[in-house]
Design a protein around this nucleic acid. Structure first.
Length: 1156
RNA sequence: GCCCAUGUGGCGGAAUUGGUAGACGCAGCAGACUCAAAAUCUGCCAUUCGCAAGGGUGUGAAGGUUCGAUUCCUUUCGUGGGCACCA
């Protein structure tokens, strides 16, 4: 019986799926363990062998923890919003939802083949409305919170409002606050919200038509596509991450991330301690405020520099410098971001004509403007100390500004010295102090004089949260009169509406801005309060909101609204809920709590800008209770319009009068109940009809999306004023990924993002595995979101990830063909004495323009050749399978390949006498590069799984090297691991003899082999040294094979050890051994140290540190006995050459060293 | 420029706390089995001197600490990653 891995793996994968062995419960007596992979973006290219590295690591560890008795959560999902799908949509017109769906399907198939133990029931996708509903919800929480500086935590903005209403703040009194207009109040609050809107400079990429995050811009061009990026002012959403800078820094102390990872985050946050101080200006009353980390150098200030964008530039500029400054400002403006970054070394600047006064010695300091000072950092102005700062030095030299030396001979006059260890000179009251110590002295003095104060600065900026894109979460925000109104939580998700084209909207807005029907909302009439109802019902009847101006064609009907009234819509819905009329209350008592046929009714639930009295959303049934029916023609027209809309969207409405309810409630309930049942049969019929008519092609994800969008929007309709407008940007990629680890804990919860019980149980992610590329982006943002949710009391921990392991990149070995000019290649061939020039010229190809390739073993000068990537599948150890390559892949068939022994052209080999010959060897060059489709060096895991099996593939990926290191991929080595698994198989079944395993009692020697492996594998797995664990398996199997051990007692323990690494073969053999139940739930073997106890050891004996002999010594010998034994040894005697040893060092269980 | 990581045979790598450098595997070489191939098995495999026994050298380079250094320290070079006019 041979090892038929394909059959075995298929069999067990099916079995496990059927038995739901990977299903994880939120309730268990076992301790919990949460293992999480950074979920993938489902790109169209599919997986290459680099991707599964992290997944295999987490899978092994999950299975290991499960065997060790933990309840392990190990989910997988997809980060399915993002730019590539949208780019693809722009090019092909395919809806991102469709391409994403297709890509996810491919990913899942590929992942499943490798045999991961994901609980797919918990799968999530960030683009799923049921998921992004809660992304939007958390956004609203951020919007409705502020950072309380006294408590250093997030609190509801309502608390702040209450404070303003009762106490005011340092800028205004409570009375003033209450007198502010709504807009003024909102503007003040906006400056405190954690998710806020502001005008800011953003990285605008014209070509992509979108704003990019800083980490999406590389060297002034877009990371994707390499298009130019410029600065542009736009209204943007931001997350106030700067408020959390200190807590994000502190949190790093409590988590296990690698040093480099922590360092990257610290760098990004960029905390610096210093002082802010004001300089008076000679000819003006203005003060110039600068930020410095080195107040000790105050006497070395030779000039000041302000950023060109600084607000004081105009005021500072003197009349005679005006022209030069204007010229300089124009120059700065003309420079693109790219140029500024590219020409860092170029020194530019202009004198303003103004002077600042040094407060300590009264020295007049010229004020300059220059690009090298950034408006966005500190105060946008610096005090320049040329002897201590290289940039200041270069600037001073360039513009011939005299340099003051305050650090004596630490300054050599040729370059700045940023030391803190010099003793200050020429420094007034700081003279004679060490710079380190002078910092504090200077700040104290500055504070004492009241001209400045200590100040901490951060390099990190608030995180831009708007993207002018389509394929992202829409903001649940509506704008009117410059005020941002959040949607009610009940109205989420705000579904991403379908668009016809994916090109940007006007003014750099996102594609959503093009859907005017969706963007512009109807002016709305508020629902009258119940008390008003019945009074003056000639204007408004039921609790409907007016639907629009009569002059608008697509929305005929009633109108009497103002924006102010519209803003009150949602509060009205809430008010109405508290304050029911008598008749409404009677009905509510009958329909609440799913009393009728188990259907859930909501009261006063806003739908499409209209608040019905009761609605059953599942059945789309609306119940209205009226004081009386509407009789006025205008009102009837309005009712008809609304009815139309509701009907179009599948809603049905039944009305009852107050009288009907009071007099014949029973009948009313019956009518409702009948309606619900009727609806049911109708909708099932309809569903059947739809099913029958729908082919696969037209029931795509995007269509489902469109249907979903149709049912929930429009919430409001276009108003004549056009002032009521939705936010048209969408959230960035990191929105959905900032909290996904929480959703896995409770993925199907419709009532909340994650039940508190679930998040209390699973708590932090114990092990998080992913690449370093998310070091600053995703990790910082998700840490921020977690802290906010913690502050607001929604979860019980504030760091999301306890331990982070970064898998290294698997680099590809690219294969390159060398192409050159005909003359160049002829020269090589002739100079290698392979042929003569006239022989080469004798071969005539007529008019064909040939490409000439040369085998790499003939190359002398690489620079004269062009290298062209060849798909690695045609190459084995640099030898090109030229025939297959020629047939399958070579674009330019007019090609000749020259080798040492002949050449290949038109599918045939010739020697240099032009006779047809058998195959020759043509070699490529190779180079290690990042694995990618375009470099043709990507290796598909599917092919390997097919050829060697998932178990071999998993183990080989781990065997390559330490998980955290980057390493090149070499497909050849996989043979070794495959041989190992076959050898393991042969311990159980021989190809000829069949079953060889037996139930004999294991010997001590055999148990020793086993327990050595248990110890090492357990330890190695625990510390993620999977490569050495794999070699330990190999050693163990080699030893068992050598000692011909086929005993079940030993082998079955080995299978349990192997389960995390090679689950399929382990399960199969476990089953073959006659074990009941799955090996996935076996008990992990415990190491018995007694079995490894030795009485003696071969000690290496070194003389002066060099090993010269080995002596077997008993372990219980003391120093004296060892010395005696060692000195008796012949080899030791030989090396002593008759001398006496100075010293003998004996380290028990290690070695003996004789010092001569 | 600054910060972090890293450097060991032809290749991937091992040596967990300073204690026999090169485990395990790939590739290669020699052999066994076979009509042959595959599969499997055995041996060799850092380098150098030597017939051998045995010795010298060797973990990017140079120093240092130590009885003993791939491991710790200093300097320096290469590679990978991150940040970058951040005052």
């Amino acid at each position: 019986m041979e090892y038929r891995f394909n059959e075995i793996e298929k069999k067990w994968q099916d079995q496990w799926k059927a038995d739901k062995v990977y299903k994880v419960s939120n309730e268990s007596d076992k301790p919990k363990y949460y293992v999480l992979d950074m979920f993938p973006y489902p790109s169209g290219a599919g997986l290459h062998v680099g991707h599964p590295l992290g997944y295999i690591t987490s899978d092994i560890y999950s299975r290991y923890k499960r065997l060790k008795g933990f309840n392990v959560l190990h989910p997988m999902g997809f980060d399915s919003f993002g730019l590539p799908a949208e780019q693809y949509a722009l090019e092909t017109g395919q809806h991102p939802a469709d391409t994403t769906e297709k890509n996810i399907a491919t990913f899942k198939t590929q992942l499943d083949k490798i045999g991961f133990c994901y609980d797919w029931d918990r799968e999530l996708r960030t683009s799923d409305p049921q998921y992004y509903k809660w992304t939007q919800w958390i956004f609203l929480e951020l919007f409705n919170s502020y950072f309380c500086n006294t408590q250093q935590k997030a609190r509801p903005i309502a608390d702040l409002v209450k404070k303003y209403e009762t106490k005011g703040n340092k800028n205004f009194t409570a009375a003033q606050w209450n007198a502010f207009s709504k807009k003024e109040q909102e503007d003040i609050l906006m400056k405190r919200r954690l998710a806020f809107c502001a005008y800011g400079e953003v990285n605008w990429c014209e070509a992509l038509g979108t704003v990019l995050a800083n980490d999406e811009v590389v060297n002034g061009v877009s990371e994707r596509g390499g298009y130019p990026v410029e600065k542009k002012k736009m209204r943007q959403w931001y997350l106030r991450i700067t408020a959390y800078a200190d807590r994000l820094l502190e949190g790093l102390e409590k988590v296990e991330f690698s040093d480099s990872m922590k360092e990257m985050q610290r760098n990004w946050i960029g905390k610096s301690q210093g002082a802010e101080m004001d300089f008076t200006i000679k000819t003006s009353n203005e003060k110039l405020r600068v930020y410095t980390t080195r107040p000790d150098t105050i006497f070395g200030v030779d000039f000041m520099v302000v950023a060109p964008e600084h607000e004081l530039v105009n005021k500072l500029t003197s009349a005679d410098q005006k022209k030069s400054i204007e010229k300089y400002l124009a120059y700065v403006k003309s420079r693109s971001e790219r140029e500024r970054l590219a020409e860092v070394k170029q020194i530019t600047g202009c004198f303003t004509g103004a002077y600042a006064i040094n407060p300590f010695d009264g020295k007049e300091i010229p004020i300059w403007i220059a690009e090298y000072v950034l408006a966005g950092y500190g105060t946008g102005a610096i005090m320049a100390v040329p002897c201590g700062d290289q940039r200041d030095y270069n600037f001073a030299k360039h513009f011939n500004i005299p340099i003051t030396n305050i650090i004596g001979n630490h300054y050599n006059g040729e370059e700045a010295n940023a030391t803190k260890d010099a003793v200050l000179e020429n420094s007034g009251f700081l003279n004679g102090l060490l710079m380190k110590d002078a910092i504090d002295v200077a700040v104290n003095k500055i504070e004492e004089l009241g001209i400045g104060k200590r100040k901490v600065n951060y390099r990190m900026r608030d995180a831009g949260f708007s993207r002018q894109r389509y394929w992202g979460e829409p903001f649940p925000i509506i704008w009117t009169d410059g005020i941002a109104i959040p949607l009610d939580a009940e109205e989420l998700p705000l579904i991403l509406p379908p668009v016809d084209k994916y090109s940007p909207g006007p003014e750099g807005e996102g594609p959503l801005a093009n859907i005017t029907d969706w963007v512009y909302l109807r002016d709305l009439t508020p629902s009258p309060s119940p008390k008003e109802r019945g009074v003056g019902d000639h204007s408004i009847g039921d609790s409907a909101i007016g639907l629009g101006r009569g002059d608008s064609k697509e929305s005929p009907g009633y109108f009497n609204s103002t924006e102010q009234e519209w803003r009150n819509t949602l509060p009205f819905a809430k008010d109405n809920r508290k304050d029911l009329t008598e008749a409404e209350n009677i009905v509510w008592q009958e329909v609440r709590d799913r009393k009728i046929e188990g259907f859930k009714f909501r009261r006063q639930h806003p739908i499409a800008g209209y608040i019905p009295d009761f609605v059953c959303l599942d059945k789309k049934l609306i119940i209205e209770i009226d004081g009386e029916y509407h009789n006025e023609p205008e009102q009837q027209k309005f009712d008809a319009a609304r009815q139309n809309w509701l009907a179009e969207n599948g809603f049905e409405m039944i009305r009852f009068t107050n009288d009907e309810i009071k007099k014949s409630l029973k009948q009313v309930i019956e009518t409702i109940s009948k309606k619900l049942k009727e609806e049911e049969s109708l909708s099932t019929n309809e569903a059947k009809k739809v099913e029958a008519n729908t082919t696969e092609a037209n029931n795509t994800e995007s269509e489902k999306l469109h249907k979903a969008a149709g049912s929930s929007s429009p919430l409001f309709w276009r108003g004549a004023g056009g002032e009521v407008k939705r936010e048209t940007s969408t959230m960035p990629g990191y929105a959905g990924s900032s909290w996904y680890f929480l959703r896995y804990m409770d993925p199907h919860n419709a009532a909340t993002f994650c039940d508190r019980k679930a998040s209390d149980y699973w708590n932090q992610v114990d092990l998080y595995i992913g690449g370093t590329e998310h070091a600053v982006g995703h990790l910082l943002y998700s840490r921020l979101w977690t802290k906010v949710l913690f502050d607001l009391g929604y979860i019980g921990f504030e760091e999301p990830y306890k331990k982070l392991v970064n898998q290294g990149m698997i680099t590809g070995v690219s294969q390159l063909n060398n192409r050159g000019d005909k003359e160049e290649i002829y020269k090589i061939l002739v100079s290698s004495n392979l042929t003569a020039i006239h022989d080469l010229q004798a071969r005539n190809f007529g008019n064909r323009l040939m490409s000439h390739y040369i085998s790499s073993d003939l190359i002398t000068d690489v620079n004269k050749l062009v290298r062209i990537h060849v798909n690695v599948k045609y190459v084995d150890s640099n030898k090109l399978d030229i025939a297959t390559y020629y047939n399958e892949s070579l674009q330019d068939k007019d090609s000749i390949f020259y080798t040492k022994e002949g050449y290949f052209v038109d599918g045939k080999w010739y020697d240099y006498k032009h006779n047809i010959v058998e195959e020759k060897k043509f070699f490529t060059s190779s180079e290690i590069e990042k694995m990618s489709k375009s470099k043709l060096n990507a290796v598909n895991p599917d092919d390997l799984v097919l050829k060697y099996g998932a178990d071999t593939f998993r183990m080989y990926e781990m065997f390559l090297g330490p998980v955290e290191m980057s390493k090149p991929w070499d497909t050849k080595g996989i043979e070794g691991v495959h041989r190992f698994l076959r050898k393991l198989w042969r311990l159980f079944y021989d190809d000829l003899k069949g079953k060889v395993w037996n139930e004999e009692k294991a010997t001590d020697a055999e148990l020793k082999i086993l327990h050595r492996a248990i110890k090492k594998i357990d330890e190695d797995t625990e510390r993620f040294s999977f490569n050495t664990a794999v070699s330990t398996f190999m050693i163990c199997v080699n030893e068992l094979a050598d000692s011909k051990c086929h005993k079940k007692e030993v082998l079955e323990k080995l299978l349990i050890l192997l389960t995390p690494y090679a689950p399929h073969i382990a399960e199969e053999l476990w089953n073959q051994l006659g074990n009941q139940g799955s090996v996935l739930d076996a008990a992990y073997p415990t190491f018995n140290p007694a079995l490894l106890v030795e009485s003696s050891k071969e000690y290496p004996i070194s003389i002066n540190g060099k090993v010269r002999a080995n002596i077997n010594l008993a372990l219980d010998l003391d120093q004296a006995a060892v010395e005696k034994m060692v000195l008796q040894n012949d080899i030791v005697q030989k090396w002593l050459e008759g001398k006496d040893p100075k010293k003998i060092i004996y380290v028990k269980n290690k070695m003996v060293n004789v010092v001569v």
